[in-house]
Design a protein around this nucleic acid. Structure first.
Lengths: 342, 342
DNA sequence: AAAGAGTCCGAAAACCTTTTCGGTCGTTGC
DNA sequence: GCAACGACCGAAAAGGTTTTCGGACTCTTT
């Protein structure tokens, strides 16, 4: 008895068992189960019945060993707790799940040693490909090991331009946000962002500036960089109102920052959206729908990003491996904090 | 050429390649790499060098096929986006990651069909065990298929008491919370909870009542069941203050509800924690640290729960399969909303 | 009746590793 | 010098599946 638990039965049925029960050879049983050519209908029926009776399920290990393909991919993330890797992971699982692919999940915790360890383990399990999900949109070093399967970097691009990376379009997101505010009739727009050393913060600000330039507008004050926290939003909004009371819209670096800004505006007696429109980034539902009024936000389309990464990996497995950085479009989700009727 | 991408090299090195390069047989190479008995030190060295030169990594499929053990487990979750499955998943990955175990991640999206599909796929990949993570603490039906590997249910217990389930101690959490409030000197405690049809809400309320009884206190008003949302917290707090203005502490069903309660208290001019103490459940950092004042909360110890599930699965694989429902203790994380000096 | 065509089935190799068992060689003790 | 023994290495089987190839059988055609 290899398995020791009393609750569990004997070992799983094998193809030989099915063949024996059906009174045919293993090769015939295999062909019958895989709908291969030239098996008598009656024979096939017997085999199918035998397989059902034994609740046979083919051993993927043996199959993978033979085929040189396992139908598995590795998903290497850097911060499972993080807010961003999760929807990506979800999208990837989604795109794979329909087919015959299973996903190995690994969390490197931002530790290079652990990452190499995981990569080695995945390679030894003969994954068909790898998706590497970063924890911020800042570029990350490529995998340390030589990997003989395709790799797609998601969210954080690889520093090596020869690698294939799929990232959100932060510049476009900034542009879209300002365009939305302008469409709402706002002209005196301020920008309270997150931590300056994040490329996401700088890219969004750059996109916002593009849209302002295109409309012949100027930002109210400077971009206020700080932290991705509500507290920063509250503090920055206070300073903004002191210095530039004429502001009629605040673009915030994240939904959390926006929540803080909303709090300060409320306390200072500014009505949202009548006096000041507010919007954030990320479209994190728990932040946006809990806010008063509900928060307009730019959705970074992370699930779609995950799906795109999965699709790209499929392509790379089956055909040619792409290169360079591809971006995924974002979209504005309008709620009460910018729409007057909200 | 099995692999078609030009960027990738030829197929991975196999043990035969190593043996050939080292000038020994495959069996000797195997023994050398696995530190088996009776291999000449010099021979072993040659083999190791050859393996390094070819960057050989043993094929886990072949190994698993032979050993009857794959060193993989399936992690079946019901809502990957959800807030609760993630830390559990993280803890499980943590406990496994140290060893030689890899994790297959599957998300059933609460769909029974998809769940069966995933279970079948996992079984065909010959996982050594399964962890099933629910999306709420309400009991869930056991897996539909007969599974010949150990299964551990985490967060949501199985309806079958013969299964092994590991869940947070919601009753204890409610008790702890009230004990903390009492320790802070509060005696007029109200409870604004979440949706009534969640066992988590009812269990926490029951635990809270136990602690009140033990202290000879009565709840202010009834338990206010509603929804797990900030909006409900705001509304319920308003009603509470209208009906029972003497209240000096509000225990909230979740951190989100607590955030709403805090908002209303602030607007009504009640100081927190001086006039009214507030606490929540879940200890969701983004909710607790963003709040003003920062929110005291009961941490459900979900990562520990994930680790416990992983450990229990290990035991079940190696030895005997446990049964019944085990609970994981919670702990209070004190912040400014109950501690006067915060 | 014989040959040919077609239909179906089975034997065997292949995938890669581990383990068991047998074999070779040198050495030691008598 | 011979037997026994120890140290080391190699052959082979096992694990489960898929695929190729050849063989056997049936049916048709001449």
């Amino acid at each position: 008895m290899a398995r020791s638990s009393a609750a569990r039965g004997t070992r799983a049925a094998t193809l030989s068992d099915v063949a024996r029960l059906a009174g045919v050879s293993v090769s015939t049983a295999s062909k019958a189960l895989n709908n291969r050519n030239h098996v008598h209908a009656q024979t096939r029926e017997r085999v199918l019945q035998a397989a059902a009776q034994l609740s046979f399920s083919p051993n993927s290990l043996a199959r993978g060993l033979l085929a040189g393909r396992t139908g598995t991919v590795g998903l290497l993330t850097s911060d499972l707790v993080g807010r961003f890797s999760l929807p990506i992971l979800m999208g990837a699982e989604d795109a794979f799940g329909a087919g015959q692919v299973s996903v190995f999940l690994c969390d490197a915790r931002g530790d290079a040693i652990r990452e190499r360890h995981h990569v080695q383990a995945l390679l030894s399990r003969r994954v068909d490909g790898l998706i590497v999900v970063g924890s911020s949109t800042d570029p990350r070093p490529p995998l340390a090991d030589a990997v003989d399967v395709p790799v797609v970097y998601a969210y954080a691009p690889s520093e090596d331009p020869e690698d294939l990376s799929i990232v959100p379009d932060n510049v476009g997101a900034g542009r879209m946000a300002v365009e939305h505010l302008i469409a709402c009739g706002r002209t005196r727009i301020a920008h309270i962002s997150g931590a300056r050393h994040y490329s996401a913060a700088r890219d969004r600000a750059a996109g916002a500036q593009e849209a302002l330039d295109a409309a012949g507008l100027a930002l109210v004050g400077e971009v206020a960089y700080g932290a991705w926290e509500e507290g920063w939003g509250r503090a920055a909004a206070g300073m903004l109102l002191d210095r530039s009371p004429e502001v009629d819209a605040v673009l915030c670096g994240s939904d959390q920052v926006a929540r803080g800004v909303l709090d300060t505006l409320r306390e200072r007696g500014r009505r949202v959206p009548e006096d000041v429109a507010v919007m954030g980034f990320d479209n994190w539902d728990v932040m946006t729908t809990g806010a008063r009024p509900q928060l307009t936000s730019v959705d970074m389309n992370l699930e779609e990003l995950g799906r795109a990464a999965a699709r790209a990996l499929f392509e790379a497995i089956d055909a040619e491996h792409g290169r360079g950085v591809r971006t995924v479009q974002c979209r504005v989700t309008v709620r009460g904090s910018t729409a007057a009727e909200g």
